[in-house]
């Protein structure tokens, strides 16, 4: 059973079909790329997968242990609790908070106290907060952002903001990460650093990653498998080499020869 299995997923906005009958599977530990021309429906597909939109039709099945969970009717926060997290095309960090607090918020579900514990500062509040604080710091160290822990997110350099956003998504305890254009707006050096960062965290944390990207150098370098979306339909699937030479993909990007 695949880790994630998307079956005949369709999303309509009124009369427009943004995602049309898309089926694919993602295996544990894979790094999959999702590419396609502008307006192909890539971000919409991500939004459906992470619960921002409900699909019009189709199923999203996640394998968790020996259980299969249907994600398509769940709100985003519950999908995150099941181990599916995402980043955004335009960075959405909590920008007035420190890098550390950004990570702590992602770990919020692990807090072992409720309203009473918080208001009365019961012993379990201190225990749990100490634990979260230590884990958040250890986590930042793991992803080599520990030197930036106390800096407000908005004051970080652009490349680091992208990295922190990915790190924050991982801190939710995610098994699958959806990265929406992680290299958007980056210069070649930043893209290179990011490529290394993604490879690094993937092996270190045993993650499964699905990413949308327009930067083909990054896609071709790190993706093991690529899906191509055009006008909401899946038009091709294969290894980077296969995709490069697929006539349908070339047509979608460059147009017909006639």
């Amino acid at each position: 059973m695949s880790l994630l299995s998307v079956q005949k997923l369709t999303k309509n906005f009124g009369g427009i079909t943004a995602v049309s009958n898309v089926s694919f599977t993602v295996e544990t530990g894979e790094l999959v790329g999702l590419i396609g021309p502008n307006g192909a429906g890539k971000t919409t597909l991500f939004n459906v997968l992470t619960g921002v939109y409900d699909p019009t039709e189709g199923k999203i099945l996640l394998t968790k242990g020996d259980k299969t969970i249907e994600l398509s009717k769940l709100p985003p926060y519950k999908i995150t609790h099941h181990g599916v997290a995402r980043t955004f095309q335009n960075i959405r960090l909590f920008k007035d908070l420190s890098a550390l607090d950004n990570v702590k918020i992602a770990m919020n579900e692990d807090a072992q106290y409720g309203l009473i514990g918080a208001l009365l500062r019961l012993p379990r509040f201190y225990r749990s907060e100490t634990d979260i604080d230590q884990r958040a710091r250890a986590f930042l160290k793991e992803v080599h952002l520990d030197e930036l822990a106390e800096i407000k997110a908005k004051n970080l350099p652009y490349g680091k903001q992208r990295q922190l956003e990915i790190a924050r998504a991982m801190a939710t305890g995610a098994k699958i990460l959806f990265l929406d254009e992680p290299a958007a707006g980056m210069n070649p050096q930043e893209t290179q650093a990011l490529t290394k960062f993604i490879k690094d965290i993937k092996t270190k944390m045993n993650l499964t990653i699905v990413l949308i990207e327009h930067d083909m150098s990054l896609v071709m370098e790190i993706c093991e498998r690529i899906f191509v979306l055009d006008y909401g339909k899946l038009i091709a699937e294969g290894t980077p080499d296969q995709i490069k030479h697929n006539p349908k993909v070339i047509e979608a990007y460059l147009g017909d020869e006639d």
Binding site: P75, P76, T80, A85, F88, R92, L93, F94, T172
Partner: peptide, 16 residues
């Protein structure tokens, strides 16, 4: 606070 900062991101981080 995270809701004030960015509601969409907050929900994506698992906040109800």
């Amino acid at each position: 606070i995270s809701i004030f900062q960015d509601e969409i991101a907050s929900e994506a981080m698992g906040i109800n």
